[in-house]
């Protein structure tokens, strides 16, 4: 087990299975088809993301460097949360980008009954260490345990 210290963007504590990408996460491309056509597993639809394409994202601890792509990204993430089709948490190696921050915050403030903790600035070492399927525990204060 290894522990990483990040910064809390939106609060919460959760335990979930890791889903990891080392490429930028295109929020619109990843969620669009799954949300539009009611995919219960919310499989990643971004054909350019070699790590995630086709893998279920719902309920996972999504580990990523940052998000990329359309500035609709934030509202797409907000919609995923409002429809309860979101990852369990989002864990960023880098400082969070403005689109992901907006989506996470919109969900935190405007969606009742859904919690998606978001922690950023976990560092490159976090992404080097974490692998798909590892158990992730997000604790208060931006502490992330990986085992």
């Amino acid at each position: 087990m290894k522990q990483f210290q990040g910064r809390v963007v939106t609060p919460g504590e959760v335990t979930a299975e890791a889903l990891v990408t080392r490429e930028g996460f295109n929020t619109l491309a990843s969620f669009q088809m799954a949300l539009q056509f009611g995919d219960k597993e919310v499989k990643c639809g971004d054909q350019n993301n070699h790590d995630l394409h086709g893998k279920p994202m719902i309920g996972k601890a999504l580990c990523l460097p940052q998000t990329i792509g359309s500035t609709t990204g934030g509202l797409v993430l907000y919609c995923a949360c409002a429809m309860q089709k979101n990852p369990a948490c989002m864990l960023f190696a880098n400082h969070i980008d403005s689109l992901a921050a907006a989506g996470a915050i919109l969900a935190d403030v405007w969606v009742d009954g859904v919690s998606m903790p978001v922690v950023d600035s976990l560092g490159d070492e976090f992404l080097d260490y974490v692998k798909d399927g590892m158990k992730i525990t997000v604790k208060a204060g931006g502490v992330v345990e990986v085992e």
């Binding site: 500035t71 609709t72 990204g73 934030g74 509202l75 907000y78 403005s98 689109l99 907006a102 989506g103 919109l106």
Partner: peptide, 8 residues
């Protein structure tokens, strides 16, 4: 202007 998201 920053690169804001929709809704923001």
């Amino acid at each position: 202007c920053n690169r804001n998201s929709g809704i923001i």
